[in-house]
């Protein structure tokens, strides 16, 4: 594992902290400027996860909560892609955790009050670790859109939440994957916290017919990019390059 300073975050492509149309951000956004610092070992090192933590069905949300012989209800999909860094290198051994609503748009959570029913065979969480090339895949059902209390008639587009670890604590990222063609995407106050249209498009997964399994499950392709790191022979690092 090579150390090296992380590329600074280009915050123009990320949401700002204060985004009043997403109302909860108003009292949860820091009001003072973030203090800019160089990355140190504390940010460049990061937790290490082994493939042995992953259970046989952890990346299959269709069955990982279902009773024996049962399956979750919904449109069967495969989500796959690579975790890359900003240098374009695949990130191996990256832990990915996902969570989502069921096919009707309902989460399995105590604070969830949407009228759509729970699916007794769907929990809504999964995880996997990338392979040597940074590749990953999991199987699930396509989540439903759902209404949420923000504006009087706000609906979330269908989405899957992603939590991603690179090799550095400073690469830590949580984001959401949307689905190609969903008309709710441009209406969503959470999507619209990102003001750069090209950055939004980076979160929209295209349908991937080549990897679709005939008569079984459609595939969506979703690459995730984590911060890169500098490595030139001129970096003055006590631990070397």
């Amino acid at each position: 594992m090579s150390d090296g300073p992380l590329f600074h975050r280009n915050r123009d492509r990320h949401p700002k902290a204060l985004t009043p149309d997403y109302k909860t951000s108003v009292v949860r956004s820091p009001q003072k400027a973030l203090l800019s610092m160089p990355t140190t070992l504390s940010e460049e090192a990061g937790p290490v996860f082994g493939h042995d933590i992953i259970g046989a069905h952890d990346n299959d949300l269709i069955v990982n909560y279902a009773a024996a012989g049962e399956m979750a209800i919904g449109q069967r999909i495969i989500v796959h892609g690579r975790v890359l860094d900003e240098n374009g290198r695949g990130v191996p051994n990256a832990l990915i955790e996902v969570w989502q609503a069921n096919a009707g748009g309902r989460y399995r959570h105590a604070k969830e009050g949407y009228i759509a029913p729970l699916d007794p065979n769907f929990g809504g969480c999964g995880r996997t670790i990338t392979d040597d090339q940074g590749g990953y895949s999991f199987r699930t059902i396509k989540p439903g859109a759902y209404p949420w209390p923000n504006g009087v008639n706000d609906w979330r587009p269908a989405h899957i939440h992603f939590s991603v670890f690179g090799h550095s604590f400073g690469q830590r990222l949580i984001t959401q994957m949307y689905f190609e063609g969903d008309p709710l995407i441009p209406l969503c106050p959470i999507v619209r916290t990102i003001t750069d249209a090209e950055a939004v498009s980076q979160l929209v997964a295209p349908l991937d017919m080549n990897n679709t399994v005939p008569m079984d499950a459609r595939a969506y392709h979703f690459d995730i990019v984590l911060r890169g790191r500098r490595s030139t022979m001129f970096e003055n690092r006590i631990e070397g390059n």
Partner: peptide, 30 residues
């Protein structure tokens, strides 16, 4: 040729389902 970091989105109110599911009452998966 650098790529851009994927933009962040909020973890939302149900982050516990994905990251600490046992805490969220989903005890049969991990």
């Amino acid at each position: 040729t650098h790529l851009h970091e994927s933009p962040s989105q909020t973890a939302g109110p149900y982050v516990h389902i994905g990251c600490v599911p046992n805490f969220a009452g989903i005890t049969d998966v991990y």
